[in-house]
Amino acid sequence: CQMPNCRRTFSRPFNLKSHGLSHETRRPHGCPQCPKTFARIHDRDRHVKGHLPEKAHCCIVCLGRFARQDAVTRH
């Protein structure tokens, strides 16, 4: 990445361009459920899943339920 303090590197120009959007101050894609905004539609759509009432992914240790698999992994 060519931003100061960002050490991310990418082998494909598309990925570099997509990552560059995360550094943008303009965030035109708003969540319809809360005030959060996003530079990339993909990030907004992933965020919106967290508002869903169905929690299809489960932690096998504590049986906690999550809307997204990556949330279970982080948990």
Score class of each variant (00 low, 15 high):
residue 15 N to Y: 12
residue 15 N to F: 10
residue 38 F to M: 00
residue 43 D to F: 06
residue 55 K to F: 08
residue 32 P to R: 13
residue 51 H to V: 06
residue 47 H to S: 10
residue 72 V to Y: 03
residue 21 L to T: 09
residue 10 F to K: 11
residue 52 L to H: 04
residue 54 E to P: 00
residue 53 P to M: 05
residue 66 F to D: 00
residue 44 R to E: 05
residue 34 C to R: 05
residue 46 R to D: 06
residue 9 T to P: 08
residue 28 P to V: 03
residue 14 F to Q: 15
residue 57 H to S: 01
residue 34 C to Q: 09
residue 59 C to W: 13
residue 37 T to I: 03
residue 7 R to M: 14
residue 5 N to D: 11
residue 17 K to R: 15
residue 65 R to G: 12
residue 54 E to N: 03
residue 36 K to I: 05
residue 35 P to H: 08
residue 67 A to V: 02
residue 30 G to R: 04
residue 74 R to H: 10
residue 68 R to W: 10
residue 40 R to D: 06
residue 36 K to R: 15
residue 23 H to F: 14
residue 8 R to D: 09
residue 48 V to F: 04
residue 2 Q to H: 10
residue 55 K to I: 02
residue 15 N to Q: 13
residue 69 Q to Y: 01
residue 7 R to Y: 14
residue 54 E to A: 02
residue 45 D to I: 12
residue 70 D to T: 03
residue 3 M to K: 13
residue 40 R to L: 15
residue 44 R to W: 02
residue 1 C to K: 05
residue 8 R to N: 12
residue 33 Q to S: 14
residue 31 C to F: 01
residue 42 H to K: 13
residue 39 A to W: 03
residue 66 F to N: 02
residue 59 C to Y: 12
residue 72 V to R: 00
residue 58 C to N: 07
residue 35 P to Y: 11
residue 62 C to P: 06
residue 5 N to I: 10
residue 20 G to V: 02
residue 45 D to H: 11
residue 37 T to S: 10
residue 41 I to S: 08
residue 20 G to T: 07
residue 24 E to S: 07
residue 62 C to N: 09
residue 27 R to S: 01
residue 15 N to C: 14
residue 60 I to R: 13
residue 12 R to C: 13
residue 36 K to H: 09
residue 43 D to L: 07
residue 26 R to V: 05
residue 18 S to C: 10
residue 14 F to D: 15
residue 35 P to A: 05
residue 15 N to D: 15
residue 45 D to C: 10
residue 16 L to M: 15
residue 19 H to Y: 05
residue 55 K to G: 02
